[in-house]
Each structure stands twice: as structure tokens, then as C-alpha cells.
Design a protein around this nucleic acid. Structure first.
Lengths: 234, 234
DNA sequence: AATGACAGAATGTTGCAACAAAAAATCATA
DNA sequence: TATGATTTTTTGTTGCAACATTCTGTCATT
């Protein structure tokens, strides 16, 4: 992704490229869990659905495949990936390294205004959880994390983290009722905010790492149960 | 990138896609420093150069742009990026986190055969350095690093690291005479091999981190001198 | 010499048809 | 019913032309 906004050489003006629109929309639906794992995507279907020709649709699918958000199940078949236990563990280790780095660096540029925004965002998470609007809670949870990561002012890091979320996003959302219950993550988020208040990078990193580990345990558990179901069927 | 080779759901058979060929060839030339920073790449020129139509050439340029190996300098202009001091620092921090992780995990699957290969590879680096074949030395250096990283058996991690190398690769090679001198990295590499022998993940990580930091210092220095030259001219 | 306007050339994107290959559906056979 | 072969449909890729936009070189003006 062209994310060198810090370099004078880059120029992010975009006239509106159709392929970009298709990509963004499909990516959004993927993150929100609109496509279940195993779902097959074809360029003509995507093109018809969004009223464009095959070229932009093909561009979008190709890009999502490069990024690992979609996966080849055959020479002419791309599907939303199932996340294996091994892949989940790998992505989690990468998240710990990268999101930990972003968290630690976030204290270098944080302002009171940012902390207010985070506090407000956490309030939205709480409200969504109480109302059992789990999809909203998950979305706000993502916003909360990336609000912190963006404070690091490291654009390459942030886009890399985004692709990691994208790779597990579909499976994550596919199982979200299991995650959002029991005020998942609230304690870690409060600890992160406190760390930011005190400009304590190590504390923010620890809070984010703890949050990632908690999520990993829940997802691992849900994934196992899901696998067990499938084994029972087949 | 489709790198879930561990998952049964994926299928990496490729009939031979022209766009993939153009991508691989251009990527290789980029890493080897065939295109200096600032060099402009166009769809038609690339298509003509490789004797294909515009579609595969466009696919390749788009993909390299998504990955950050090329960069938009205007709505219709993609160039090989100049690496700013800020970007170099950011990529280095990411490399420390990710390559450190791969290095630490490499001890989990390393065999004596792997260590023999690494020792041999280091011999090739030494020979190339003595003969002042700096481009070869740099290439073998890359092979050495990724031999270790692949031992981690974490495909997502490896492709992400490759993307980072690709982002700074062109600038790195543009300056390589400054790097290869003085047996750069030899000591760190020997330390890494020793760590692998003893299955000491922390030691391998430390050696790799040290290697990355050394390279960072040299590149930072060269980059500054290069910038000073440019300032003197303009 | 520096700057701005302008015209011609070049560029990326999009849509689309053709093609070979793969996937899905159908049918035959056991 | 299950299995394998065969036909039919669907699919991704490629090449290419058209179009609007952007870039580049030139020239006039100061």
C-alpha cells in the first residue's frame, strides 16, 4: 500500500479508481464478517454485484489475495480462508511483535485529545456490549486499537498490522459471539489508557499484549470447538 | 501473498501467469538494484520490455505498489522510492521485531544439515567480499538471512519480512559499496550460527538484531552523505 | 534567468471479447 | 447408492482500443 505519507516524494491524490472502490468495499465486508470462511469469490460475480466491469473486480480480488485476505483453493478458485490453529498462532506472534511495537511508540506523540477520544471509544464498546450488539463492539474494538497504533506515526507499521487483522478478520467475525461476551478486553483497554496518560510505553505495550493474548485464547477455544463440530459431521 | 502452504485448503499450483512472471522479474531487478531510486516505471514500457501486453505489466506494477516497493509520485507516475531517514528508522524497528522473532523461532526446527548450508553460505559471502564482488556478497547475505528465517516455518512472517526488504532493497543496493566493505556482518553471522548450534533462540535473535543494527548505522550514514550531496547540488 | 501558459505526447484505467483451462453438472456403469 | 467418465458451464487471464487525465517540452513574457 502507498503509505509513505511522510515522504515529500509521494502524492496520495486519487482521482477515484474503480478498482480501489471495489477493494475497499470488499475489504470492509470481509472484516465485518459478511463472507464466511470457505466462501468463493469470482470476478464476474463481484463485478456484477457492484456494477463495474471485470477489470476493477479482478484488481480487487488479486490485491486481497496478495495480502492474504483471500486464498487460492485451486487455480481458478479463491475463497475466504479458514484459519488453522497453526496460522492463528503465527499471526498472533506477529501481532504481539508489531502491535507491541506500535503500542510502545504511541506514547511518543500522544495528546490529551487522543486520550479523550480513546476513553470515549471505550465507552462505545461498553454500551455495545451491554446491548449485546457484538458486531458493533468488535468494530469499536478495532477502532480503539488503531487509534493507539496511529499515534506511533509509523505508516508502514500500521498498514502491515492492518493486513494481519485482515487475514484473520473473517474467521474472527465468524465466531464473534464467543469473543464479545464477558466484557472481553475492557480491563486491558483501561490499562492501556492509563499507560498513555503516564507516557509509559512499556505499560501500554504490556496492556496491548495482554489484550492480544486474551483474544488468542478465546479464538483458539472457539476454533477448536468449531473444528470438533466439523469432525463430528464429516 | 498466498503463503498458507501449511493449510490443506490452499493450492499453489500455478499454470504460469504472465503477470506473475513480470512481477517476479521486476521484483528481482528491484532487489538487485537495477533501478535507482527515482526511476519511473510505466505500464507500456514494462510491457514492451518483456514482450507482453499491458495487462500483466499493469498487474505487476500495481502489486509492487501495494507492497510499497514502488511509490506514487503523482496520479500517473510510479517511481522507485527514495528512502527517507524516517522511513529507514521505521522499517528497521519493524525488522528488529519481525526478524528477531523469526530468528528466535529458527532454533525450533533447525537441523545439522541447515547449519552446514549456513556455514557454506557464509563462506560464499567471505569469498565474494575478498574478491570485492559486493553485489554477490549482498545477495548471499540475503540468502543467509532467509535461510535462518525459513527455519521458523512461519510463512506469513517470512513473506512480511520479504516485503520489508523489498521496500528498502532498491536504496540499499544503490549504496552497496558502502556496506560490503570491512567484512560487514561476518561476526554477527558467526554468532548466529553458534546460537543455532546450541539451539539458543535468544542468542540467534541477539545476533540477528545486532546485524540489523549494524546495517542500519551504515545505511543511515550513507544516506546522510548522499543527502548532503544532493543538497549541495540543488 | 525565472516563471507561467499552452499544446502535443504519454499514461493509467476501464470495458470487453476471445481463449484455454478448470469446475460443476450430467450421465453411465457397476 | 457410489463411482468414474464425459459433457457443459463457468472461470481467470490476456490483449487491445477508447477515453479522460496527467505529464512534458516549448515558447512567450517579465
Amino acid at each position: 500500500m502507498a503509505d509513505n505519507a511522510d515522504d515529500a516524494q509521494t502524492d496520495d491524490r486519487q482521482p477515484v479508481r474503480l478498482g480501489e472502490v471495489v477493494y475497499q468495499q470488499t475489504k470492509e465486508r470481509l472484516i465485518r464478517g459478511a463472507f464466511e470462511p470457505g466462501r468463493k469469490l469470482t470476478v464476474r460475480a463481484l463485478a456484477d454485484a457492484l456494477g463495474v466491469s471485470s477489470t476493477p473486480a479482478r484488481d480487487a480480488i488479486n490485491r486481497l489475495t496478495f495480502e492474504g485476505a483471500l486464498v487460492y483453493a485451486g487455480p481458478k478458485t479463491v475463497i475466504v480462508p479458514f484459519i488453522s490453529q497453526q496460522t492463528l498462532e503465527e499471526i498472533t506472534l506477529m501481532r504481539l511483535a508489531l502491535e507491541g511495537l506500535a503500542a510502545e511508540r504511541s506514547v511518543l506523540h500522544v495528546t490529551q485529545d487522543d486520550i479523550d477520544k480513546l476513553t470515549k471509544m471505550q465507552g462505545q464498546i461498553d454500551v455495545a456490549l451491554d446491548a449485546k450488539r457484538y458486531a458493533d463492539a468488535l468494530w469499536s474494538n478495532k477502532e480503539f486499537h488503531f487509534l493507539i497504533y496511529r499515534l506511533s506515526q509509523m505508516p508502514h507499521l500500521i498498514t502491515t498490522i492492518e493486513t494481519l487483522w485482515l487475514r484473520i478478520g473473517a474467521s474472527f467475525n465468524d465466531l464473534y459471539p464467543e469473543f464479545a461476551e464477558a466484557k472481553y478486553g475492557v480491563h486491558n483497554h483501561m490499562a492501556a489508557i492509563e499507560g498513555l496518560l503516564e507516557r509509559d510505553g512499556a505499560a501500554v505495550r504490556a496492556a496491548i499484549e495482554s489484550d492480544i493474548r486474551d483474544g488468542y485464547r478465546r479464538m483458539k477455544k472457539a476454533n477448536r470447538e468449531r473444528s470438533a463440530e466439523n469432525e463430528a459431521i464429516f
